[in-house]
Design a protein around this nucleic acid. Structure first.
Length: 591
DNA sequence: GTGAAGGGCCAC
DNA sequence: AAACGTGGCCCTTCAC
């Protein structure tokens, strides 16, 4: 493909290029960088394309004149990039947005992300990849050469081949958008794509902000866990070894305590009836009778703490900021939920010993907010069940209210046991639980579990109806949606009961889990706009929770903004059930 | 040596 | 026989 491009290397050239681009409403956009991490490398090229002509802006000569974050002659470029009335079509725009934000000091406005669009179109059918070359191949039927992607972008003089590669990636974007838009419109995905596009910049900012971790505190905790692991490990080794015949000159063979196979063998040698798996919930009943099983569970606990939540997390601290900048995937799950890695800040244990290590920097506060029972409220709204909605509207303890209705007693008479039952029921139905699993979970007999579920669904008949309808419709329609219009398609083998069952449970859960994700994403955008220009920074999200760090003096106004953004976002998608946000301010990421 | 699969377990 | 949804990370085991 012939490519028509112009390389910009000075202020006059930039001014001319920006003047030429002024008035164009939709532009292909891409960047080339010397590293993948904006804290570690330089932004080298920005490519901005009308499709017919591509401006390739080389920042290297500008960098020689001073700090490109503030250099006045780059202002026309910043104005163009931050203008949200000018659409920037980019593939995985979060990447480019982070570099623009950190290295040019402005937001990327008007994001249209072809990567997210492609994922939305595939609707959870996981067989397709979504790299730019894959998307171009699939939607345009053309092959895109990505071999220059990993070339040396720090070189003094870039090769013609590098420049052409860079220009081509931006130039192709308007065409990709056109093809994607046909499918987006046809599949009714325009609203959810807007939601996703508007969320890109808040997430880019959050990753740049990072979450402060008190390394000293973390290491103190780690030292305690290390001691506990050594102690539990050697005790467990002795207890397990007691069943093994004294073997060789070298004493008892050492058992690898992390190997299920070896541990299971050792337990069998001790005459312990080991269940099919050695998972904690299976072993728990044996722990009372057999001290060695209790010790195994204790060891597992500390070993998990050591490996998943040990020294390795500190390796992710960025030296320039002293903070952890994790990687958030915006459509991490087909339901629309985020996933998080390197490290996963969504799975830090609840215990204060871990969470208190994540804190505000000196002179600042954390404002921590989460949606109260958002998934149950969404289910209530989808099903329009009167009893269910009433329970929320009354404002009383929801699980207690369920218990009162299921057991046919007054709310005041609900025992803690009954409330706990109701709570597990409430969460179970969101996942499409069955009687046998509920029996296993609660210790009820199969019959009692069935009766309890029957009573539960009799209490909430419209909810029962809605869940059944979801399970029924998926068989013929093979798809379902969230409130934003996010689509999930299903593949299952009609002859295979387990695959049908799995699809039916997912059809019940996906609209609920996915609408919760819709709401969080909407809230992030509203918040982003409301805190612009203040000291507040988004630092973490965990499915139904948002953590913001701000100056201590601004904590009250930040809390009000966060509360308002989350509430409005909830009310955008849930109309007939009140939205409740629990919010508090703290020095640390604790309750 | 490297990578995939499976078990186990952390979060919501 | 079993079946409670979504992730990521660490470990062992096993194949290449």
């Amino acid at each position: 493909m012939e490519i028509y491009y112009n390389v910009v290397r000075d202020a006059d050239g930039l001014k001319a290029a920006c003047a030429e681009l002024a008035g164009v409403r939709s532009l292909g956009f891409d960047t080339e960088t010397t590293e993948l991490d904006p804290y570690k490398g330089d932004l080298r090229l920005l490519q901005i394309s009308t499709g017919a002509k591509t401006q390739v802006i080389d920042l290297k000569p500008f960098r020689a004149k001073g700090d490109v974050r503030t250099l006045p002659e780059l202002q026309p470029l910043r104005d163009l990039l931050s203008d949200d009335k000018v659409r920037k079509i980019a593939h995985n725009a979060k990447f480019d947005a982070k570099w623009v934000r950190y290295h040019l000091g402005c937001e990327l406005g008007g994001v249209y992300d072809t990567y997210l669009a492609s994922i939305l179109i595939s609707a959870g059918e996981g067989e397709r990849r979504h790299g730019l070359a894959d998307v171009v191949q699939f939607f345009l039927g053309r092959t895109l050469d990505k071999s220059e992607q990993v070339s040396d972008w720090a070189a003094d003089d870039l090769s013609i081949s590098q420049i052409e590669y860079a220009a081509r990636d931006a130039a192709i974007m308007p065409e990709v958008l056109e093809k994607l838009e046909e499918r987006i419109q046809a599949d009714g995905l325009a609203d959810v794509l807007r939601l996703e596009n508007e969320c890109v910049m808040p997430i880019a900012e959050m990753e740049l902000n990072g979450f402060y971790i008190d390394q000293e505190r973390w290491r103190e905790q780690l030292a305690k866990v290390t001691k506990a692991q050594e102690k539990a490990g050697s005790e467990l080794q002795d207890m397990l070894g007691a069943g093994i015949a004294q073997a060789s000159l070298f004493g008892r063979p050492e058992i690898n305590l992390d190997s299920q196979a070896q541990v299971t063998d050792a337990l069998v040698n001790l005459g312990i009836p080991v269940p099919n798996t050695t998972r904690a919930w299976e072993l728990q009943p044996l722990a009372e009778k057999y001290p060695v099983v209790a010790k195994l569970l204790e060891y597992r606990g500390v070993a998990k703490a050591m490996t998943s939540f040990g020294e390795n997390i500190l390796e992710f601290v960025e030296p320039k900021t002293g903070r952890i900048h994790a990687d958030f995937r915006q459509i991490g799950a087909p339901t629309g939920r985020f996933s998080c890695s390197k490290p996963n800040l969504q799975q830090i244990p609840h215990e204060d010993v871990y969470r208190r290590c994540f804190r505000a920097e000196n002179g600042r506060k954390l404002v921590i907010a989460d949606y109260s029972q958002i998934e149950l409220r969404i289910l209530a709204d989808f099903s329009q069940d009167r009893n269910f909605i009433d329970a929320f509207e009354s404002g009383q303890d929801f699980h207690a209210a369920t218990a009162a209705q299921v057991f046919g007693i007054a709310a005041a008479d609900v025992t803690p046991d009954q409330r706990s039952f109701a709570k597990r029921l409430n969460f179970g139905v969101v996942y499409g639980i069955g009687a046998s699993r509920f029996a296993l979970m609660t210790g009820l007999s199969q019959t009692d579990a069935e009766n309890t579920l029957r009573k539960y669904f009799a209490t909430y008949p419209r909810m029962d109806e809605w869940l059944r309808m979801q399970a029924k419709n998926v068989l013929t329609e093979r798809q379902t949606r969230t409130r934003s219009g996010r689509l999930a398609k299903f593949r299952f083998d009609e002859g295979d009961r387990s695959s049908v069952g799995a699809a039916q449970r997912y059809a019940k859960n996906m609209p609920i889990q996915g609408t919760s994700a819709d709401i969080l994403k909407r809230a992030l955008r509203l918040l982003h706009d409301d805190i612009r220009g203040t000291s507040a920074k988004l630092v973490n999200i965990v499915h139904d929770e948002i953590v913001v760090e701000c100056d201590a003096a601004e904590s009250e106004s930040t809390a009000a903004k966060l509360d308002s953004a989350m509430r409005r976002a909830g009310e955008d998608y849930v109309k007939s059930v009140p939205i409740k946000v629990d919010i508090h301010t703290s020095d640390e990421w604790t309750k």
